[in-house]
């Protein structure tokens, strides 16, 4: 089994790329791979707790929480969070925050890196 790091920069609401990343993470974890998820830029909105589900918008929050329970590592960019007014106490339990050097270090340890850097 291998290690996959996925970096995502797309918006939570307004783009479906985060859904793609979370679904890929789920499929990889279910197959026994280790998966790291890095949230940066607008994607850091996914780290926020108390999201409400609306049927007009995708809702990866629920799957993300299940995957954290199955060992998915999720790290959100600290500066991106703070610039968007998301404080540590606003974040979903189990999601860590750090600076981008941690993402690069995880990437260097990974067999595969999928970096979704554009919307």
């Amino acid at each position: 089994m291998g290690m996959l790091s996925i970096g995502v920069f797309s918006s939570l609401v307004g783009s479906m790329d985060l859904d793609f990343a979370v679904r890929l993470a789920r499929a990889a974890i279910n197959k026994g791979h280790t998966v790291n998820l890095w949230l940066s830029g607008n994607a850091t909105a996914l780290s926020k707790d108390k999201q409400k589900e609306f049927k007009d918008y995708s809702f990866p929050d629920k799957t993300l929480r299940e995957l954290i329970g199955k060992g998915l590592t999720v790290v959100s960019c600290e500066a991106c969070n703070q610039s968007r007014g998301i404080q540590k106490e606003d974040m979903t339990e189990g999601i860590n925050r750090a600076s981008m050097d941690l993402y690069l270090a995880k990437a260097a340890q990974s067999d595969r890196v999928l970096h979704i850097g554009v919307e």
Binding site: M100, D101, L102, A108, E119
Partner: peptide
């Protein structure tokens, strides 16, 4: 217009401190 290029540059710049997590720098 987009934050994307700046994030590329700041990520690249952070390579120099990755050795606090792993044996060699990125």
């Amino acid at each position: 217009k987009s934050e994307d290029p700046k994030l590329a540059l700041t990520h690249a710049l952070s390579s120099g401190v990755t050795s606090i997590h792993i044996d060699e720098e990125v």
